[in-house]
Computed example of a mutant assay.
Amino acid sequence: MNDLFRPVRAIKFPAIGAVSVIRAAGPAPPGPGEVLVGAEFLGICGTDLHVLHGQHPWVRPPLIIGHECVATVLAAGEAVGFAPEARVVLNPLVTCGHCRACRSGHPNHCATAKVIGFRLPGAGRTRFVVSAAQLHAVPAGLDPRLAVLAEPLAVGIHAAGLAADLDRILVIGSGTIGLYVLLALRAQGAGAITVVEPIAEKCLLALRLGAHAAIAPDQVGETAEFTTVFDCVAAPATLDAACRMTLGGGAVVVVGVAEAARQIDLPRMQRFEIDLFGSGMYVPADIDAALAALTTRMIDAAPLISAVRPLDGAQAAYAEAMRPDSVKVLIDMR
């Protein structure tokens, strides 16, 4: 049997709170429009951790996890524009391609979309077959450990692009996504950016990445001061603060994922004509923009990498990703 199709190693959550590296069935040969890739690095996402600990609203173990992935093309079916050995980044959002949202250039609005690693088998496998339509070419010279950051960075780029007035910015939460929003805002030429974050180490990292100020949640005032507020937590208290701290005519962009319905101060939002945006993942162009920004060093995301761990150490890697001061832990899948 061709070595490309032999059994693979994969990261599985067999039950809530459990991480295993298993031996799984090997991939089938790629068909028309498909590509067989070999994973290089896998990023651990906050949503992965929610699934692992039974905190995700609709995804539960057991499953093979992983959606932040940089890989190398090993073989390709017919009508594929990627040659063997090309390096690619995965777009895990699989959409129908023919609904109104998809046809209008907003595949992130597709009502039947599914995400690899949650509703579809994950990329946490040493080799797997995927549609070529889900892949983005990595520019020559970009370190794969940075290229794997393109998918989460695209979340920040998409969110930052929703608001028009970037004069005075508040970013609530400097976890992984909050820091990517910060980097994207800096690259877009935003004015003064204040970050709200309870963990001192992450406040320092936000300042290192270009925030003009980093404050604790109890330092948030009562008077509106900001033209746009990005809520990267989406808790009741943070959403209330976001609405309160936005100036008239400004905008609140909710990037964090709420596990339940939220209330907002609608009278104030209406009286002062404050826009409320929900930011849902990204479109393919955002991933391309992320790859370009990482390649040109317009965005330096290297400080966000907390650790790189081997596949055999996957269990410890997910535990490390849970640490309050951790940002992005990578797993070397090679």
Rank of each mutant, 00 (worst) to 15 (best):
I65N: 01
H98R: 13
G81C: 03
L74G: 04
V89S: 07
C96D: 09
E85G: 01
E78P: 00
W58A: 13
H67I: 04
T95C: 14
P61E: 07
P61V: 05
T95L: 00
V88F: 10
G66R: 01
V94P: 01
V80R: 11
H98V: 12
L63A: 09
N91G: 09
C99N: 02
R87I: 07
R87Y: 01
L63C: 09
R87P: 00
F82E: 05
P92L: 06
H67M: 08
V73E: 06
G66N: 01
V88I: 15
N91S: 15
A86Q: 13
G81E: 13
E68A: 10
L74Q: 15
H98Q: 10
A75H: 12
V70G: 06
P62T: 09
F82W: 07
A79C: 04
P84N: 06
A86N: 13
P92C: 09
L63P: 02
A83P: 00
G97D: 03
L74F: 10
H67G: 06
T72Q: 12
I65F: 03
T72W: 02
C99F: 04
L93E: 08
I64R: 10
G97S: 02
V89D: 06
A86G: 02
A71L: 07
E78W: 03
R60I: 01
E68H: 12
V80Q: 11
G66A: 06
H67W: 07
A86K: 04
A79G: 06
C69Y: 00
N91I: 04
V59R: 11
C99K: 01
L63S: 06
F82I: 01
T72P: 00
A83F: 03
C96L: 05
F82A: 03
P62I: 12
V73W: 05
V70Q: 10
E68G: 08
G97W: 01
C99A: 02
A76R: 13
H67F: 07
E85Q: 14
A86I: 00
V59N: 12
V89C: 10
C69E: 12
V59I: 15
L74W: 10
E68M: 10
I65S: 08
F82M: 04
T72R: 15
W58F: 15
L90Y: 06
F82V: 00
A76E: 09
A79K: 13
L74K: 15
V73G: 05
A79Q: 14
P84K: 07
